[in-house]
Nucleic acid binder design. Structure first.
Lengths: 146, 146
DNA sequence: GTGTTTGCAAAGTGTTTGCAATTTA
DNA sequence: TAAATTGCAAACACTTTGCAAACAC
């Protein structure tokens, strides 16, 4: 069965995903394992709950949309994912949680990473009294040439 | 009547608001005038449709929520407002459409301006082929010290 | 066995839309 | 009076929730 094939990506065998979930205090259930495999195997990605749900169904993984939402939030809470705000109508989740920024394609709604060393954000202002900086997000909004 | 008092802010008398709307091709209706006054008189602000609707009601301005949404989008289309994406569950509109960035207070959902000269965003990466940069948004997310 | 997780359907929230009535030019 | 605008209620898209059944340890 597809679910038991842990050798697709030799860098992250099945047992690693189990360990990864365990280490953040999440039980490695069938649904969480399958979603983690979709999310973390292969290249970094930017995805919405709806899209991940469709991908799961295409991969014959039975999981409800509610569980996809719950799982995305749980993964975000424990730092496996990062939520990105670019579009007020949808939540995007990013499997790359290193320091980086984004191109946002207004027309398609797609995102692309900008590695941290490709941009300089310098001379940050002091955060308002009583607060501290949690994160700095740079979004470069691009549109297609006409 | 409150609506006819154009002298609250001497810098933008009533007739200016009318002209401002006309010049962007929007008929100066009662609703648009009243919302424009709430939005553009006084200091720059960051507001959601829901909040503006409540403000309007508090000011005894009869306007439906649908019209508030329509008006905010029309004002955005003609460049009187800018939409800011910081929270995937709500749309924020900014009456300051000069070049600037934002602090976002995660807990309260409030926004504060960061003037353009208070931050350096340098060495922007090339936009992907076939696209051009429409805007660069920097959001500094802050949380309260514990 | 005990506590956790899941799926479902229902409810919730923010937003948009269709259309008749009203207003503007 | 012709065209634009409004308000209402219904529809919508996305997301969360309550709770019984299924599962993990």
């Amino acid at each position: 069965m597809a679910l038991m094939n842990s050798e697709t990506n030799p860098k992250r065998p099945f047992s690693d995903v189990i360990e990864r979930l365990r280490s953040v205090g999440l039980r490695p259930t069938r649904q969480r394992l399958a979603l983690a495999k979709l999310l973390f195997e292969g290249v970094d990605r930017h995805i919405t709950a709806e899209k991940l749900h469709i991908e799961a169904q295409e991969a014959s993984i039975r999981v409800s949309l509610a569980t996809v939402y719950n799982t995305l939030h749980q993964f975000t809470d424990v730092g496996l994912l990062r939520e990105i705000a670019v579009d007020s109508s949808r939540s995007y989740f990013d499997t790359n949680n290193s320091d980086h920024h984004h191109f946002f394609f207004e027309e398609s709604g797609d995102l692309a990473d900008i590695e941290d060393d490709q941009i300089d954000v310098a001379r940050l202002p002091e955060p308002p009294a009583g607060t501290h900086i949690e994160r700095v997000d740079v979004v470069i909004r691009v549109i297609e040439d006409k």
